[in-house]
Simulated scan of single mutants.
Amino acid sequence: MNTSMLTLSIELPQPPVIGKVSHHSIALSWINEDRKRQDGPPECWTSFSVEQMDTKTDTCKTIYIGYGTHHIAEGLKPSTSYSFRLRVTKPSGEGYLSPAVSVFTTREPFSGRNLHQAVNREDVKGLTIVLQSGMVNVNVHDKMGFTPLMVAAQKGFTSLVEILVKHGADINMRDSAGKDSLMLACYAGHLETVKYLRQCGASWQSQDMDGCTPLHWAVDGGHQPVITYMIQEGCEVDVRDKVSLWTPLMHVSAISGDAAVASILLQAGADVNVRDKAGKTPLMVAVLNNHEELVKLLLDSGADHHIKNEYGAGAADMAKAFERENIMNLLE
């Protein structure tokens, strides 16, 4: 009995040797003790097959058959246990089966998608883990062209903004339209985020593709606390964009008509009679957009309704052309 057991142990091949393991593959190798016989015809060669075992169903499938001494199992799931055994078939037809060997695939490596998911979920712990792995560029863009810092700034996740900046996030990076993180935070009205980005060196003078500055974007968003803070911190009130030469006050006249926002700008010294590329004033633009309350505020703040644009039309002419009787009464 002992002799039989000894013979069996000698005949049993060693299990496959585990080589490089990734999240989707496992390298396997083994020794061909009959390599010298492969100088002869194939029918004299020892063949090998690798079987992958499924412990749940107690079944196995053959993933390799041949005369080689290595194979890479691919298409595997990350963080999953796999078992393999080697079947050795001698030229005589005798077959021997090795014991099984088990190994776990590694976890899937972190990607930019993981980084953006952590930001969108406001997951401080998850974000920190991804960044500390060193696998992902902190400035990686998402499908919309936003970096993680841009997303965090737009959402007002100041704690995440701090983490990203400390891990090297570039506060000056821009999206396809030229907007940086400060502009996004200003437009969304996240005062604490705006303050932090300023502490990190973000500039009030930065411009997007159209030449709009953070103040233009804060005005478009209508966020009075942010606008007030920006002005207190020395932000230029009458800065112009590059397309129409509009100041932030012109933006109010054209877009929102928000008299409260316009009042902050005027009190800070905004030029009520500034003229754009076509010679229009904030008053003319407010008239064209039927912002009655803003028209009244501009007139009370010294707007000159006698000014003409480059085509010789004034605010009253525009009100008349669009039959804005309520505004015509104010102008008279």
Rank of each mutant, 00 (worst) to 15 (best):
A303Q: 03
A313S: 13
P15M: 07
P42R: 07
G257P: 03
R107K: 14
H190E: 08
V226Y: 08
K277F: 09
V50H: 01
G134C: 04
L294D: 00
K56W: 12
S203T: 12
G201W: 06
F48Y: 08
A316H: 02
P225H: 05
S159L: 10
F157G: 04
V119A: 04
L297M: 09
C212P: 01
V295W: 01
M53Y: 15
E51A: 14
R107E: 11
K296N: 03
M209Q: 15
P15I: 06
M328L: 03
Q267A: 10
F48Q: 03
K143R: 08
H251V: 15
V50Q: 09
L164V: 05
D175K: 01
T3Y: 07
Y82V: 15
L164A: 08
D220W: 13
I171K: 02
N326G: 13
T46R: 03
D210K: 02
H70V: 13
V136Y: 10
M284P: 03
N114L: 04
E33M: 12
H306D: 01
S111N: 09
I264V: 06
E108H: 10
Q224A: 09
N139V: 04
I31W: 11
V103F: 02
P148M: 09
G234V: 11
H167V: 05
G314L: 00
H216Q: 04
G189F: 06
L164C: 03
I129M: 04
D210A: 04
E325S: 06
G201C: 05
S79V: 14
A100V: 07
Y82A: 12
A27I: 05
G314T: 10
N172Y: 10
V140S: 05
T62S: 10
S4M: 15
A254S: 12
S301T: 11
A268W: 04
T213P: 10
A278Q: 08
I129T: 11
M144K: 14
Q267P: 02
W217K: 08
P41L: 14
G68V: 12
G168L: 08
Q207D: 12
P248R: 02
G222L: 09
S102W: 04
